[in-house]
Simulated scan of single mutants.
Amino acid sequence: MELIISDPEEIVKISKTLSVMARVNILRLTSENPLDITELSEILHMSKGNVSNHVAELESTGLIEINYENGVKGIRKVIKPKYEKITILLSDTSTSSEKTQENG
């Protein structure tokens, strides 16, 4: 699935979320295979609390899906990206074609 954003406020919101390398790494790692908080914590060498905070930020911007599954010691929070591709449109295509016609 692809996310295409052109709204300036959405561009800023997504950009801020992706400006932290740990969040980008979480998206990349979980795109290969859905992982839970503990697994991400071990792979990224970060505390579970820190990983949980980054996951919460990704969730609030709608970039990940979370599923709850039974685990060995309770419920596992399993993360996977919602989108395979994120496209940012910096100009509205209808506006661009109108400008081209005016100048041509």
Rank of each mutant, 00 (worst) to 15 (best):
L89T: 04
N50S: 14
M1K: 00
A22H: 01
V55S: 02
E32R: 01
S31E: 12
L90I: 12
G71M: 05
R28K: 11
A56R: 10
T95F: 14
V78A: 10
K73Q: 11
D36E: 05
G49K: 04
Y68R: 12
S94L: 15
K82D: 03
I79F: 10
I64L: 07
I26M: 10
T87G: 01
V51G: 09
L90V: 08
L29A: 04
V20H: 03
T17D: 01
S31T: 11
G104Y: 10
I43P: 01
I5P: 04
I88P: 01
V12P: 01
T100C: 07
P81N: 09
V20L: 03
D36N: 15
E2G: 08
L40T: 06
P34Y: 08
L63Y: 03
N25R: 02
E84L: 10
T30M: 02
Y68V: 06
T17R: 03
K48S: 11
Q101R: 14
D36K: 04
E57Y: 08
Y68L: 12
E102F: 10
E39Y: 01
S41E: 08
H45K: 15
K99T: 11
L90K: 13
E9K: 08
V72I: 14
E42N: 11
E2C: 03
E65Y: 09
V12M: 09
T93Y: 11
E42D: 15
N70L: 13
H54R: 08
E59H: 13
I11Q: 04
I26G: 03
S60C: 04
N25Q: 08
S15V: 01
T87A: 05
S94F: 13
A56I: 02
